[in-house]
Structures are given as C-alpha cells and as structure tokens.
Amino acid sequence: MRILVDKNIPYVYKLFGVDNKMIVCEGRFISAKDVRDVDVLIVRSVTKVNQALLDDSAIKFVGTVTAGVDHIDQNYLKKYGVNFFYAPGNNAVAVVEYVFSALLWLAQRDGFFLRDKIIGIVGVGHIGSLLHERLHNFGVHTLLCDPPLAQKNINKPWRSFATLISEADILTFHTPLIYKGDYPTWHMVDIDVLEALPSNRILINTCRGPVIDNNALLKVLENGKKLNVVLDVWETEPELSLPLLSYVDIGTAHIAGYTIESKTRGIMKIYNAYCNFFNIFKTIKLSTLNPSSIYYLQVHNEIDEILLCKLVKCVYDIQYDDIMLRRFACVSGGFDKIRKCYLDRREWSSLCVETYVDSKNEMLTQLGFNVCCL
C-alpha cells in the first residue's frame, strides 16, 4: 500500500510503516502531483482535500486526524467512491483543558472566581458538552446554545444566542465552520454582536477563526470597547492580524487541541478505520502509544480555585504559548513553525495527584486528573 501522511502526525511509521510504502509531506503543501499514485491519504486541517487535489489520483481512503472536517470536500469523496474517516472528539479533552486554563489565568489576573461568572457555551458537541460537564462539576453556571441540537433534543435547557449575548459573562465558541444553510456560523460574531455585547465580557474562540469577524473585532477594540479576548484560531491563518494580536489577552497558534494524548487518539481512530476498511487484522492498544504520568504531587487541602490553578500550571502554562505567538507571529512562516515544533504538551490526566479520597477530592477525578490514594 502506498500511504501519504502529513509529516506532523505522530506514530505513523509505527502504525502504518511495517508493510507499506510511506511518503511524508508538509501538510500545507501537499499537491495533486504528490497524491497521484497514492492509495491512502492521511492529513490534518491544513490540507484542503478536494477535486483539485484528488482528480486523476488512485486514492481509495482519506483520513483526517482532526475533529473538524471543513477542509474536506465530502461531497466530492462520496461522488467518486473515496472512503473518508475522521476523528470526532479526539481533541475534546485538550481543548476543554485549554479553555479552562485560559479562564483560570484570567480569573487570577483580574481577581475574580469562575464560580461567580456565567459561561455561555456556543456549540455543544463533543467539546462543548465536555466543557459544560467539567464546569458543572466545578460549580460554574453555564448557558447552552446549539440550535441544530436543540431541534433534536428539546429536553435540555437550551438558550438562544441573543440570550447568551445579554446574560453570559463569558462566551466560548465550539462550533463547526458553516457558510450556508439554516445555521451558518461564519461571522456569527459580527460587528452587530460585538457592539451589542456589554463591556467587560470575555470572548474565547478555539473552533474556527472565521466564526468571529476578526476585522470587526479589531475595530471595536481599537475604538475602546472593553472586552477580554482569547483567540487560538484566526480568520486568515497561518497569517494573522498583528494589530488584533496586540489587543487580545491570550493569543495562540491554533494549538488548543495539541496534546500528546489527543494526537494519539486521532491517529488511532484513523488507523483502526484503515484496518477495518482493508481487512487488516492487527491490534495496537492506545495505552502502548500514550506515555505514562509525568508528575506526582501530594494534596492535602480542599480543592478550591487557587489550588486548581496551581495544579493546572504544573501540567500546562497557557501564558507560554501566548508568548511564543507574540514572538514569532511577525516572522515569515512563524505560525506554522510554532505548530510544527510544538512542545509535547500533556493533558491533566498525566498528573498523578496523591490525596485522601473523600467527597471533596472526587472533584479532581471529575476534572480529569489522575488521582491516587495516600
């Protein structure tokens, strides 16, 4: 089998390379010439998989290790019988922990407690629902907005986007990028929404850059609107607005979902789909790829927000990623270089917290930490 893989996807030689001819390429520059004689294509979100790429190719199987699929022309693949697989939910834990880290950092800097805020979650799929669950476990009040899901499940306390704009202290976005239809998300945060937002609100975008009109956001910030903004995704990435970066509180290079664990889950989902499709009977357990715990800490106090912030920083310091983007954003290719050379960030489960087990410290498990009994 001839398999072409984005060079930034881990474990591909270990999973696919034993009996196949492996070709690795820089994902953003994969061309029609590269895929012409290839059977299997495995990509990330930086590769546009469409007619221009696949015409006259021998591709039978396309896999993307991402949860989002707006870079894939699924209609074209279906029309020409190309089997397609993706990895929904693989990065949910990583993105949720990124958002939680950003919120804890802002709370510590600005002197508030998350439990005193109302958080509006826009998009309640894999990521949004997990974020709601963890915030609820920590005692934070949330408002849920997802019109397509609300049509299917009327039993949840859904709220309109207009309600979130007026009532939520914090808005965090976890939607796919949809340009047309009943529920488009392209520029759902436009100049009208931004002007309607009360001052001192917090905006967080970790889904797709064009969900927020970046030019409109820059305009209201330049005009003195007081908003706290966390952007991991940008409308014109890998290029981005340097003036906008100068206004946001936290800016990162589309790495919210980048943990060792999420990358491993993603490629394992594609590998399993590949084995099923080609009737390959091999078994590789996820645990054999994931590294073990990296830290051990003893905790004797009750779990409050101050202690949680300290535990989170033991695993991941979001401010470091903000510093890296500000340092390299003005360098040609800097955005992609950060992503390509991104440090081996781990999830909270890699921190083994040794503590006494009681109803109070069960919260650590509910928040995703690995808890050991003293």
Rank of each mutant, 00 (worst) to 15 (best):
K340G: 00
D70P: 04
V229T: 10
S287Q: 15
C314E: 15
H132I: 00
K310V: 00
A52N: 14
L130S: 01
P157G: 06
D304C: 10
V331R: 13
L41Y: 07
K360M: 03
L308T: 04
D19Y: 12
V95W: 04
A216R: 04
I202P: 01
N361P: 01
Y296K: 14
F61G: 07
V99A: 02
T365S: 13
I294N: 14
K226Y: 01
T47W: 02
S332L: 06
S287G: 03
I191L: 15
D34P: 05
K180F: 08
N91F: 06
A196Q: 13
L244K: 09
T64Y: 03
R327E: 15
K78P: 00
F112P: 05
L149Q: 14
S45N: 06
Y76H: 10
H132G: 00
S350K: 14
D249V: 00
R109D: 12
C275S: 05
H136K: 15
C373Q: 13
V331Y: 13
A94L: 10
R327S: 12
A329F: 06
E235P: 11
V371S: 06
D73I: 03
A256T: 11
D317T: 02
N75W: 00
R36P: 00
I118R: 14
S262G: 09
A67N: 06
K263M: 05
H126I: 01
Q298H: 13
Y183P: 01
I267F: 07
M268F: 07
C330P: 00
